[in-house]
């Protein structure tokens, strides 16, 4: 893995094996439960509902019975500097309030709700639709008592701010605390994984430090089946996908004729 940027820090990233992904949605519910994402009465309005990781259904477009569906789980891509002079992720460049930043030491793009002024520039700038605006306060009506399951690790959001996947940053802090309690400074690979990684029942998601050759993600992103979404935008996402299916890979970007490289002879 060549270094995209000057520093030699950690670069947390994710690899999602689309051949394994079954579209069950456990990553989405695990994420919502982990990150205190509120559920509103109408979640079918996808422009308003909040899903830090979103499953997209894609189809090969063939006729019955040759139709196939596949699924794209899409967390925040945690884009990086472009390596040609340090352009930041598109959301970071447009943020007028310094509410979203790329942490060069972890590669994680933060989102600070109390700093956010709700202008939604970042939402418009994000090519992956990974950012969500809170049109309302978190929905926890008193008479239900649902606030009892809220985790203190992530603060519930107020209306008027943007939120998005944080790569479960609080889990990194939790892992660090544990390491510190044991007198260590560094954490092990398995100590910090996101809630979706942990929850995936088919183990389709792998999480780790892309810069660390000992981590599994480092090895996986070098597979010929590895690719990223909208690679030509050069936003350097830290979320990689694996698929052996050409029709799935082809949907990852807008290829010009002849530009797409097939992996297999068939399909």
């Amino acid at each position: 893995m060549k270094k995209d940027h000057g520093h030699v820090g950690k670069k947390y990233g994710m690899v999602i094996d689309l051949d394994k992904c079954t579209g069950c949605g456990t990553c989405m519910t695990a994420c919502a439960a982990e990150n205190n994402v509120s559920v509103r009465k109408d979640e079918s309005d996808k422009e308003r509902s909040i899903t830090w990781i979103q499953l997209y259904q894609i189809s090969n477009g063939k006729k019955f019975p040759d139709t196939r569906y596949s699924y794209f789980p899409r967390p925040c891509m945690h884009c990086d500097e472009d390596g040609r002079g340090g352009h930041h992720p598109s959301c970071v460049s447009v943020c007028v309030a310094s509410a979203t930043k790329l942490d060069p030491h972890t590669g994680i793009v933060s989102q600070i709700y109390t700093r956010c002024i709700g202008c939604r520039y970042c939402q418009a700038a994000c090519p992956f639709d990974a950012r969500y605006f809170n049109w309302w306060d978190a929905y926890f009506p008193k008479e239900k008592g649902l606030e009892r399951y809220l985790s203190p690790d992530v603060s519930p959001r107020m209306r008027g701010v943007i939120e998005k996947c944080s790569f479960c940053h609080h889990r990194l802090m939790r892992a660090k605390n544990q390491a510190y309690a044991e007198g260590r400074r560094e954490i092990e690979e398995h100590e910090y994984i996101t809630a979706c990684t942990e929850a995936c029942p088919v183990q389709a998601i792998t999480f780790g430090d892309l810069n660390n050759p000992k981590h599994k993600v480092h090895e996986l992103i070098q597979l010929p089946t590895a690719f990223r979404l909208l690679e030509r935008l050069n936003t350097k996402p830290k979320v990689y996908y694996l698929s052996t299916k050409d029709w799935v890979r082809r949907l990852a970007d807008n290829y010009r004729p002849g530009e797409f490289k097939r992996l297999s002879k068939g399909s």
Binding site: I108, S110, R115, M173
Partner: peptide, 11 residues
């Protein structure tokens, strides 16, 4: 300095 990254102290 690295601990001044936003997410270090914000959740």
């Amino acid at each position: 300095e690295e601990n001044n990254a936003c997410f270090v102290c914000h959740k």
